[in-house]
């Protein structure tokens, strides 16, 4: 049975990791979550990133956040990955595609070209 008391245990476990958390993650994964994104399937894409990044142990390397309408509604779900000055825009995302983006791009720094907006507009 899950109880609120377990949160105190999470707190204790996390406190030992505080220093790790304070390291600034260098990559930002931003998921468009306005009406257009949500109706196109952004919610499961976001959750796949949240769980995938945590499960791959990449929480200190990349953060996952939400934003409003990016302006290219026809390509939703849209995900932007920022790394320093570089921005990569992934379009028509699905939870299945998320696994490859995490493995290739977030973990190994190799952009998944076939999922990017450049490939979609060719």
């Amino acid at each position: 049975m899950k109880s609120l008391a377990e949160l105190a245990a999470i707190r204790e476990r996390m406190q030992s990791k505080v220093n790790i958390r304070e390291n600034n993650a260098s990559m930002r994964i931003v998921v468009g979550m306005a009406t257009c994104g949500i109706s196109a399937g952004a919610r499961p894409v976001l959750n796949a990133f949240v769980e995938g990044v945590a499960n791959a142990g990449l929480s200190n390397k990349a953060t996952v956040s939400q934003t409003g309408c990016i302006g290219i509604c026809q390509y939703e779900p849209v995900v932007e990955v920022y790394n320093g000055d570089e921005k990569v825009t992934y379009v028509n995302m699905t939870p299945e595609k998320v696994a490859k983006v995490i493995e290739d791009h977030i973990k190994n720094g190799k952009v998944v070209a076939e999922y990017t907006i450049g490939a979609a507009t060719k």
Partner: peptide, 27 residues
Amino acid sequence: AEMRELLGDVPLNSPEVLMWIRDYLEE
């Protein structure tokens, strides 16, 4: 708010906490 009291400065969007929320509601 109830969760925050027990979590102190641990953010509610930590992956561990988000997974707890999912399990807690599913149960």
